[in-house]
Amino acid sequence: MATLKELAAKDELFSGGHRLCSGCGIPPIVRLLLRSAGSPVVATSATGCLEVGTSIYPYTAWRIPWIHSAFENAAATISGIESAYRAFKKKGRIPADKEIKFLALGGDGGTYDIGFQALSGALERGHNFLYVCYDNGAYMNTGIQRSSATPLGSATTTSPAGAKRPGKQEWRKDLTRVVVAHNIPYAAQASPHNWRDLEGKARKAFNVAGPAFMNIISPCPLGWYSKPEDSINAARLAVDTCYWPLYEVENGILRVTYRPKEKKPIADWFKIQGRFKHLFKPENSHLLDETQKRIDAEWQRLLDMDGKAVF
């Protein structure tokens, strides 16, 4: 486990001056990821906030080889890149023992939804890469439309809260669990507020042989209707309410990596975000209750699985 001092001494591969919003969760995530790699990294980004915000001509925030392909295919693009490097090594064009890491990045829209097929395919084929989803719970880049990662009851521009419907009607997809079902060597959930946990997981993920996946919650003041200065706290609350449990599945064994000292009610996380404002009206209290119930059950399921094989 690296100390903060050691981490800070490493090269900054993701430069400042990018155009992501103040309070956005993505930059601290990417900076930590690149600091954890330990070897040269080649990265692809799906269309999304990260891609748009870091690469508007004539500036780029990337001090590594980086490709933006399209919305649905970051995992497919990294598959091609990783295979090409393998061929280069076979042909002796680069030394066979040279360590190169491959990283694909996508938001929840580009990962849970349109990029899901490409992700699943790449995991099954077993490419040696790390896929990281920065999950801010909606299509923020196009103006806050719901995704399959959007929490139940959340108001977005395509799941508006009104007289007929109190926000999104569906429970979010548990993508981490779906990915785990691909039997890959490493999968984890992380949060930018817990840098030590995130860095340790990223290092593991980069170093396993075969595909690895990290789902990282990423606060979005714009889409969460929260204060930019509250972002890290919002990430912390997502974890302390167990909405976003921190855990990993390494070679099939699940481990809960953080247990809140005091598990907070989900309302604590909801009330600092405008997207859940309507859930505090008496007529919508059933949604709050349902959310709490499901979170409790899921947390209990994880605790029961802790230290055990997932299959």
């Binding site: 196009t142 439309q145 395509t158």
Partner: peptide
């Protein structure tokens, strides 16, 4: 599916159709 510059059509119908 959200895509600029057509997204307002989806957003509007998500309100109006229900």
């Amino acid at each position: 599916y959200p895509i600029t510059p057509s997204t307002e059509i989806a957003e509007g119908l998500s309100r109006r159709l229900p």
